[in-house]
Amino acid sequence: MRILHTSDWHIGRTFHGHSTLDALRGVLEALTQQVRDEKVDVVIVAGDVFDSGAPAAACYTLLSDTLRALADTGAQVIVTSGNHDSAARLGFQAGLLRDGIHVLTDPAAIGTPITVTDADGPVHFYGIPFLEPALLRHLWPAARSQADVLGHAMDLVRADLAQRGEGRSVAIAHCFAAKVEPTPQLERDIQQGGLDVVPWSCFDGVDYMALGHIHGRQELAPHARYSGAPLHYSFGEGSKPRGSWLVELDATGLAGVTWLELPVPRRLATLRAPLEDILTDARFAAHEEDWVSVEYTDDLPQREPLRRLQARFPHCAKVVHTPAAARERAGGTYVDRVRAARSDRELVDAFLQHVRDGQGASEREADLLADVLDERTKAEALA
């Protein structure tokens, strides 16, 4: 059996104020073509289908179009909810969906798999929606953390597998899993991205574990992986490849996993140099059509940097002033320096150091300030 593992579509997310719907639609169309070309039997979407609990109408349209196109390839499609999704909104039409599309959002159904059969027999797919411990304590009183609820969910999976006695298995979850073991008597849960850390060992007992939540591909073990998001949603993700895992099961279990690259609609680049160099230097020409984040290193802030940069880089989305050498702010905090000032000149210099990342008045500025302050002193004396 051939399984495509994808996750974290985040339909509706913006990129620095720009809609990503059209770019995501193109990437999901490419993913659908891969499903067709690779003769995939089952497509898994491991949570965070939408970017918010109340997506706009256009987001539902993109999801419907994509699910229908995936089903038209002949593949079964299994979708679970993530922490960004509203399980109720994502799953409210589950009973009305066409055959071959399964949206799993109910914690009560975790131990009941979607079973798909191939020439080697059944494969049981267990969808674990995002589980919020506080909302499940009336059902699972011992659940206090993500590790607790995921551990309980996997116990349900393993119990069902033991009762069936045959068949290969795939579980799907949306969480932050890591190669850690729980530490007794921790006063607070370890969290990442708003989710508790879950020890990856709790996923033992299945042939493949399809994980969502982390936006970069990652292998915790040969049978436990993150596929990452299909689109870059931040400059921090710019160096991470976009794609999905093609998982193959044979008669005995996991036979192999292959990475399938997805197209990147527009590359991301972070440029760091003095502003004038970024505006004029030929070495930055290759990035003129990229999404660009600029960190300009001039000692002082420059006027209208975003407007000037967008004249060369139309898709410049972020500008940050990061002086090349951060100066130490002598004399403690700004409040400390203001309190310590013994004259108006020292007070103005304290303000300039605060807004200029440690750089006070230049010699010319000091002379100008001295003239202005002297004039004010004379005016006050004559008043």
Rank of each mutant, 00 (worst) to 15 (best):
A326R: 14
A58Q: 10
S86R: 03
D120K: 00
E248I: 00
T61H: 03
E289S: 12
T280V: 08
L31M: 09
E380T: 13
E375A: 12
L279T: 02
D51Q: 11
D85R: 06
V338W: 04
D160E: 10
D37Y: 09
A57L: 11
I172S: 01
E166D: 13
G100W: 09
L231W: 15
P263N: 09
L211Y: 03
T14S: 15
D344P: 04
A46D: 03
R307L: 15
D367P: 00
L96I: 01
E380S: 13
A285N: 15
V292H: 02
I114P: 00
L382D: 13
P301L: 12
H213G: 03
V294Y: 12
D160R: 13
S293D: 11
Q310W: 01
D371I: 03
I190R: 01
M1I: 11
G193R: 07
S362I: 07
G212H: 08
R342M: 09
G91S: 10
S7A: 07
A210M: 05
L271P: 00
L260D: 00
A108R: 15
P241I: 02
A251E: 09
C175R: 11
D22C: 00
P141M: 07
L70P: 01
G121F: 04
L136A: 10
Y126I: 06
M154A: 03
S244T: 08
L31E: 03
H18A: 12
E248G: 05
L347D: 10
S169Q: 09
A57T: 09
P113C: 11
P323Y: 14
A94T: 07
D118G: 07
G331N: 11
T183C: 02
A87W: 13
S86N: 04
L246P: 01
L220G: 05
F313D: 02
E380V: 15
V123G: 06
H315W: 06
L90V: 03
P55H: 08
D250A: 02
A54C: 09
V319S: 01
R307M: 14
V27A: 08
I278S: 01
E289K: 08
D106I: 08
Q218E: 15
A119M: 05
G47E: 07
H124S: 10
L31P: 00
E288T: 06
G151E: 01
Q353Y: 02
T112N: 12
L156M: 15
L31T: 04
L373K: 14
A71W: 05
D51P: 10
R329I: 11
P107K: 11
W245K: 09
P55F: 05
Q185D: 06
G53Y: 07
F92N: 13
C202R: 09
C59S: 09
F50R: 08
V40F: 08
V197Q: 01
P55C: 13
P133S: 07
L373Y: 14
R13M: 04
L96E: 12
E295W: 14
K179A: 05
L368P: 00
G212T: 07
A221E: 08
L161V: 04
E363R: 04
A221C: 04
G332Y: 04
T377E: 10
G127I: 12
G127L: 14
F351K: 00
P323S: 10
R13D: 03
F15K: 02
E187A: 14
S81A: 12
I78W: 06
H18P: 00
D120F: 08
T112R: 11
T183N: 02
